[in-house]
Write a protein that binds this DNA or RNA. Structure first.
Lengths: 189, 189
DNA sequence: TTAACAAACTAACAAACGTTAGTTTAAGAC
DNA sequence: GTCTTAAACTAACGTTTGTTAGTTTGTTAA
């Protein structure tokens, strides 16, 4: 934890490669080449390949958990909590597009920290679902199977990293506003 | 094309492994072991590893293109066309959950057919967007940036393969109905 | 001037990779 | 009983993989 600047460079460059080709298809020599050094030199800064992936994924997962834990405690309507969750995803995905790819697609290649990651994910989804269920109870949200609503919203939010780089012109808060409209109120007039 | 039964077995088993670990992390020896034979024996039935991935992805991509091309021609409201697209995704994802994982996550490892896949995908998204834009013009759909609506709906549909196996109890047509409600009309009461 | 250190290097490793070549086995057809 | 064929096998190949060990380089501090 708390990586040196050089270590952070490696992680950043590796993230970009992982996004394009996936963790397994990127070699240490690929990462080294992208940094302009030799593969063996990477080991002056990192323990092994796994450590790079672990850092990318765990730090993002913790960012999400911290974000949603804060939101759930607020004194707010459930709909407003959901809007804040949407903004949280837009914010993180905008700041770390590449890392989001690993979080979504490469988590299964974690070893030491796989169990920890999975509990973080379960906790996140549980909190999300609880907020939806509260919204149903308080008559803010339709009484549909809450898993379907959770799935539908979360799938969109998890895919943001793919679309955000294609729409660089659109600013984050406008994107969050429009997404909230679409996800919460639908597209049907 | 038109694979022998044995070849189809290989593709089916490989799909399951690709879903769990991704194309690059699955070796020919893994596939062989799952079939109870040796890796070299696979080559009696398939040309190489790439051919397995290509078959999985291209046949699915063509299924989607054929499906949406039929839907767009129908004499129907745009909202009903979107409902049919949602049902199309639920149907295909239910019938080939494992293949959908490769379509979503491993398409970048295609070689010979990468360009063909990309044109299929662009065509699919263009048709989808055209239907949304017609809906806006006909006042069936809200006048929000159509890319955001497309992205939001399509992200959910593309993730179906992850959730469907977790909800085996829910039947396909009920899932499609509920999804249509959520995606088209939102969750806000 | 020398000592210390970070960060690069070269060289090599054992293991795993996709794939090829040639051979064996078992079943059905003539 | 021989021929054919499908589908498995063993053995090996050249490459690439992640990683280690030991060395050199260049900068900063004493």
């Amino acid at each position: 934890m708390n990586p040196t600047p050089r270590k952070l460079e490696i992680i950043t460059i590796a993230s970009a490669l992982f996004k394009d080709r996936g963790f397994s298809a990127v070699t240490m020599r690929d990462i080294a080449k992208a940094m302009g050094i030799k593969a063996a030199s990477l080991y002056n800064h990192i323990k092994n390949k796994e450590e790079i992936l672990t850092f990318i994924i765990i730090s993002l997962a913790e960012e999400f958990i911290n974000g949603i834990d804060e939101i759930k405690e607020e004194n707010n309507t459930c709909i407003d909590k959901l809007k804040k969750i949407i903004a949280l995803h837009v914010d993180i995905a905008t700041r770390n597009t590449n890392g989001m790819a690993s979080l979504n697609n490469d988590w299964m290649h974690l070893k030491d920290q796989l169990d920890y990651y999975l509990t973080l994910r379960v906790n996140y989804e549980d909190t999300f679902r609880t907020i939806i269920n509260e919204g149903i109870k308080k008559n803010e949200i339709k009484s549909i199977n809450s898993d379907i609503m959770l799935f539908s919203i979360l799938s969109t939010l998890r895919s943001l990293y793919i679309w955000i780089p294609q729409k660089e012109d659109m600013n984050s808060s406008l994107l969050a506003t429009n997404l909230s409209e679409v996800l919460l109120k639908g597209i049907n007039k």
